[in-house]
Simulated scan of single mutants.
Amino acid sequence: MALTREERERFLAEPHVAALSVDAAESGRAPLTVPIWYQYEPGGDIWIMTGRDSRKGTLIAGAGRFSLMADRVTPTVRYVSVEGPVVATLPATREQLVEISGRYLPREKVDDYVEFAWKEHGEQVVIHMRPQRWLSSDLGES
Rank of each mutant, 00 (worst) to 15 (best):
T33V: 14
R52F: 11
V34Q: 10
T76I: 10
S67F: 02
G43V: 04
S54M: 13
W47C: 02
V34I: 15
T33M: 08
W37N: 01
L59N: 13
I48Q: 01
G51T: 09
S54Q: 05
L68T: 04
R52T: 10
G51E: 09
P75F: 13
T50C: 14
T74Y: 13
S67H: 06
Y40G: 03
R55P: 07
T33Q: 10
W47T: 00
M49Y: 01
L68I: 05
F66M: 01
L59A: 07
L59R: 12
F66I: 02
T58W: 03
P75A: 14
G44D: 09
D53N: 12
V73A: 15
Y38P: 03
D45V: 04
T58R: 15
G43S: 07
E41I: 03
D71T: 10
G51P: 08
T58G: 10
M49E: 09
F66Y: 02
T76H: 15
T50E: 09
K56Y: 12
S54I: 08
I36T: 05
A63M: 02
T50H: 05
A61E: 13
P35L: 12
Q39N: 08
T58C: 09
T50V: 07
G51Q: 13
G51I: 04
T58Q: 15
D45F: 00
T76P: 11
A61C: 05
R72F: 01
M69N: 14
L68A: 05
I36Q: 03
D45C: 05
G44S: 10
Y40H: 11
Y40K: 10
A63E: 08
M69V: 14
I46V: 14
R52A: 14
M49W: 07
K56E: 12
T74A: 15
G62V: 05
W37V: 07
T74C: 02
T76M: 07
W37Q: 01
G64P: 01
F66N: 00
P42M: 08
G64L: 00
Y38T: 02
L59I: 12
V73L: 14
A61P: 02
A70M: 06
R52C: 08
Y40T: 09
E41L: 13
A63R: 07
M49S: 07
R52I: 00
I60P: 01
G64N: 00
W47L: 01
R72L: 00
T33D: 05
Y38G: 02
I36C: 04
A61M: 02
D53H: 11
L68N: 06
K56V: 10
L68F: 06
D71F: 11
S54P: 10
K56I: 06
G62N: 11
S67R: 07
I60W: 02
Q39S: 11
L68K: 03
Q39L: 09
I46F: 08
T58P: 05
S54C: 05
M69F: 04
I48P: 00
D71C: 09
W37A: 06
K56M: 13
T33N: 12
R55V: 14
G64T: 01
A70P: 13
D45Q: 07
R55M: 14
T74K: 14
A70R: 09
T76S: 11
Y38M: 09
T74E: 15
G44N: 08
L59Q: 06
M69D: 00
E41P: 02
F66L: 01
G57S: 11
A70K: 03
M69L: 15
V34G: 06
G43H: 09
Y40F: 15
W47S: 03
G64A: 01
P42V: 07
L59C: 06
